[in-house]
Design a protein around this nucleic acid. Structure first.
Lengths: 201, 201
DNA sequence: GTCTATAGCCCGATAGAC
DNA sequence: GTCTATCGGGCTATAGAC
């Protein structure tokens, strides 16, 4: 049994990956050790040998998913190009919209928010994302892409929320449409934040 | 057993209200008939006499919650005042942020989105809200509150998403702060959509 | 490390008395 | 209408053999 994120055996990895998938598909309450074992092709004893139980395994899985989500966002945000282009690349990335956000979706689960170790990766991921977007937008303002009244931190908070809310609306509609409409509306609002013509460096 | 939303007995009402509360607190998967009966002060037989089972009772509860949410939004959006004031009133309404949205929270549950009758109230509520916000914003543009390039429908979609996403971020953080930051950022973006000085009617 | 067996509890639902 | 009894099954976890 370990949960410190180090290498681990093949079986342990399979268990973590199966848990990641099931947490995404069914949430924490809806994910049973039994289902994890079946998807991982491992037995009871195997799972309880490597992990202390469902919460322990879930903590490892959520940490890994958070890391992966952060890496994907960083890939878009650290591209070449203007701030607006990088934000657009982040927002326009292909997503399996109807599946929802692997991290944000867990925030709905009462057992997740009640367990500080389970909730921490959610909080840290969104805080990191907001801070990273703030950096990008602040660079954009410094370059004259946005006017001096433009608020990088507040806008970053809004961007993160629109993506998460877009997932909620799409799943409610059973259709990715509302997700894209919300993002398009946001981009149009952003486009109007341009500095006055001629002031751009 | 009924589920057509008509008056019904006192016990049936208590069961629906208990279900509304539990769906909000624990989600659909996390809500058991047993827990509903205990909170409503009713027995097994009572519940299965009035309703066909958990899905049937949940459908009645979700429809009622959706109606209540819509009424609350309409109260803010039909006030006296400018479009911007009404949107601000809607966004600024007191909310128990950490509880999340009674309707949007259910979109995360796979059993809810898989059941068309259970998902329909979610879709309809958000569609109605978006349409209503579009109306308000279009009035604002007609009155000269916003410039001619302003996009009421796209902005309405974004507004709905920011609120839903704000709940996700707040629950992830265990703190209402991110909800309010996202809304403030949105309002700042909206403020920059003003028509040029002097063009307002 | 992995297996099977078992535990005790809750799930969602049905049956039938009153 | 409401009650209690009961069902078959899944849940999370532990025990102990191999």
């Amino acid at each position: 049994m370990y949960s410190t994120g180090m290498s681990g055996t093949d079986t342990a990895h399979k268990l973590i990956e199966a848990t990641q998938e099931l947490l995404w598909e069914r949430g924490y309450v809806g994910t049973s050790p039994r289902a994890i074992q079946q998807r991982a092709g491992a037995g009871q004893g195997s799972m309880y040998h490597h992990f202390g139980g469902k919460p322990d395994l879930a903590r490892a899985a959520v940490r890994k998913s958070a890391q992966e989500m952060r890496a994907a966002a960083e890939a878009d945000l650290s591209r070449e190009g203007s701030a607006r282009e990088r934000v657009r690349a982040y927002l326009g990335r292909e997503r399996s919209v109807l599946r929802g956000c692997r991290i944000g979706g867990l925030a709905q689960d009462p057992d997740v928010v009640a367990d500080p170790e389970l909730r921490a990766p959610l909080q840290e991921t969104f805080e990191w994302l907001r801070a990273r977007l703030t950096e990008v937008l602040a660079e954009g303002r410094a370059n004259g892409e946005f006017g001096p009244a433009f608020d990088p931190a507040g806008t970053a908070a809004t961007i993160v929320a629109v993506v998460q809310g877009g997932y909620v609306l799409a799943r409610s509609a059973g259709d990715p449409g509302p997700f894209h409409e919300a993002l398009d509306g946001l981009l149009r609002l952003l486009d109007c934040q341009a500095a006055e013509p001629g002031t751009r460096s």
